[in-house]
Each structure stands twice: as C-alpha cells, then as structure tokens.
Nucleic acid binder design. Sequence first.
DNA 1: TGGCTACTGCCAGAATCTGACAGTAGCCTG
DNA 2: CAGGCTACTGTCAGATTCTGGCAGTAGCCA
Lengths: 229, 229
Amino acid sequence: MSRSERLLDLIQSLRRHRRPVSGQALADELGISIRTLYRDIVTLQGQGAPIEGEAGLGYVLKPGFMLPPLMFSDEEIEAIVLGSRWVAKQPDRRLSAAAANALAKIAAVLPDDLREDLDASTLLVGPPAAVIEGIDLGLVRQAIRNERKLAFHYRDAGGAASQRVVWPFALGFFDKVRVVVAWCETRQDFRHFRTDRIAELTPIDTRYPRRRQAMLKEWRATLDKPRGS
Amino acid sequence: MSRSERLLDLIQSLRRHRRPVSGQALADELGISIRTLYRDIVTLQGQGAPIEGEAGLGYVLKPGFMLPPLMFSDEEIEAIVLGSRWVAKQPDRRLSAAAANALAKIAAVLPDDLREDLDASTLLVGPPAAVIEGIDLGLVRQAIRNERKLAFHYRDAGGAASQRVVWPFALGFFDKVRVVVAWCETRQDFRHFRTDRIAELTPIDTRYPRRRQAMLKEWRATLDKPRGS
DNA sequence: TGGCTACTGCCAGAATCTGACAGTAGCCTG
DNA sequence: CAGGCTACTGTCAGATTCTGGCAGTAGCCA
C-alpha cells in the first residue's frame, strides 16, 4: 500500500472511532509502527485535517470529509461554483457561510490564474426572493442530522394556529419557500411545514425512534402512490 | 520538493501550454529526467487526469482542474451537495449534467458510509419554475468563456422585436428567469436579455475586442452608480 | 506516585524513487 | 520511402525517502 493510500485509510479509521483512540491502536489497525503513525498524523494535519491529540487520551478527528486529489472539468467546476453561490444567498446563515467557506477553500488551492477565473466567474446568482426566515434553519438541519425532535407553533394556509412536535427528516428548498418534511406526532402522519409559517422553534433533546433515511424513503413512496405529480 | 507537489506542478505546466508539449520540455521545466516524467504522467493519469500523449507530437491536458487533497466540514459538504443539486435542476442541460457528474465524482471517492449519507442527504431541491428555454444556454456559456459574439432575435418587455449582436460576458440566474448580460453592439451600451425572450441564437466565430472580466467590472460599476438599490 | 499517552530526535536497514541507457513503435515531413 | 521527433517500456544501480526501534520529555488521569 502506498503512503498516500495509507493516509486516507488513517482518516477513515479515525472517523470510525468517535471516542479518542490511542496512537498504538491506530498503528495496529494499519499495520505500521507507532513512530510512523505519528509521522502520518503530522502529515495529515499539515494537509488541513482537524486531528487533535491529547496526551493520556488519544486522537480525535473533528467531523468532516477528506477528499483525495480529484479532477474536474471546466463545466463541473462552473456548476459547483454556481451552486455554491446560490447556497451562499440562501437565508440559512450557517449554510450560507459554509458555502462561502467551501468556495474559499477551493480557491485557496488553485493556481493564481484559475483563482481569478473563479472569482470573476461569469455565472451570477440573483438575490433571493426576500423572504426573511423567522427561525434559524441551522437548528432544523442540526435536528435532522442528529435525528432529534422539534417543537414549534404553526400557522397553516388557512391561518389556523397549532402546536406541533415533529420528527424532521428533510428540508426542501423551493423558489420562494423552504419546507420542513417531518413525521408529525400530533397528526400521526407525514406533513410538511413552510418555514415562514413556523414560530417559536424549540429543539428537543430527545432522539426520535426511527431512522431518518427510512422515513425519507417511506415518505417518497407515499408521494409516488396516491395522486400523480 | 516532494513527489506529490511535483505532480501538481506538472499539471500546472501542462495547463500553461495549450499546444502539445514534448515530455523532454516538461522534464526540463520540472528539473527531472524524462524517465521520471513518464512515470509521473502515468501516475497522474491513474488519478484521473485527462492527459493525452501522442508519439511525434507531445502531451496535451484536456481543460480541467486538479484539486489536491482537501478537507471539508460537514456543513461545507452539505452546501456543495445542495448547490449542485440545484444546478442539476436548472434548464441548462450541459451544466445540469456537469453538476450531476461532479457529485458522482465526489461520491465515488468517499467511503461507503459517507456515500450513503450523501445519496440520502436530506437537503432537497424543489422542481424549478417550469420555464422551458427556447435556446441552448450551453452556447451562451461557451460564448462567454471564449469571448465570442452572439447574434439573436429579441422580443423586449413591450413586445417589440429586434435583432442584436452582443458581446456576452455574464449569465445571471434568478428565481424564474435567466439573463444574459452583454455589451450590445446595436445600442452601444450594456444591456441584459431574458433568455426566454431570445430566439434564433447564433454563435459568431469572431472574438470580441474586450476582456470579459474588464467588462464585468465596468458593468458592475454602472450598477452601483446611478440609482441606489 | 505510577500508568498511559502524545510527541521528538536519532540512526540503521528497508523500501521506493530516480536517472541513464537500450530498445520498440507511432506520427509527421520531405 | 527515409529520417527525425516523439511516446512508451524494461532494467538496474545509486540516490532518496520511508520506516521501525530506541531513548527521552512532557501532559493527563487515577
């Protein structure tokens, strides 16, 4: 196994253990000596991997993805840049910042001439429909990622108000509105909620009993069945 | 210089020469022997770089970008995936395919568990406003990239029809419409054209006399000056 | 205090990379 | 066709890098 492959394997090993792991354990997994492992860790940190080591404890990798060297065509990069610019204009501040950061990271590693092309890239995104979210979409994404319940007040299309506890599993981005897709505890059914009609959003620290992906799949099935469209 | 750095340098050298370059010339640039250069080329091709060599001619790199290993946070990847999905739903077929390809490339190099996360990622994009383009946006993007003129028939907001020859330098994506930003030869001024009002688009093989980036900058300046917004 | 751990410097042997040379084959020009 | 240029491969010895083991320092925890 070449060294660069081994470095990727090391990242994956670190990903699997969420608790701190000793260097010795990692070295055994990879079949290398502890001395070499220390050198590999330094190399990865030098490449920007957020690996933290503490004496007496071990190593932890902060969540993230390591991409190996990758080749993109002109159009693929145009697509990624345009898409990220669109996300950067979305009202979800954290996601928007993440999109900007991702672009900055890519720009940072490109040679000068390409970076200019990217900065002055000629695919522009117009301002979003000026809907100001009353709630923090970051909380919703976090709840979805961690499979946690959410409670909120909802005002439906007819103006009727209600309180809900839901199991959110997807967030839909439409032209003008964003929609939380969830299993509604109150109604015992899949429901979707326009984010601009949600108020007093409260994350609940309880994990909901089902798997996010399973719910997504089931919900998609219900979409296909009843009425076409 | 480490080997992996040298490989990136080699890609950049290839990028600079658009015409075929002999292996010997590349080896001299990098200060390595021709034998080593051949080995490096094989390595890069193995990593997916579209380098083509022909006996008697030299090497050419098909246009594209090589990204070195890169670390992204969870949210940054979410942003890129969401953005690419949005682009994938745009009516520009080539760009949309490029977005899908970029996602596929990223997915291909991720370990299994992460790939599932990505596939089942819970940020969804709704269908685009069903505006069907009468023209091929790919032609517009190509004209912008290569700084070529475009000719077309235009029907303005009042319904008045006209023929234009323009120097396109940007493409704007709004909620429902896409807009070509260009210097209009006919009117001798910056104009923008909704793509759904353009007909009989014809690429012209003549390069326009100004630099795309300069025009973009100048156009932006005119936006800031006259009326606030 | 003792045990576990991260981390560094050093060095010899292992593994890899590199350059030189020789040889085959494809493309182009005259 | 011949001759020049080039891509590409195999081989091998020497240069370079990587690796493992050892010794030592320092931080965390019980």
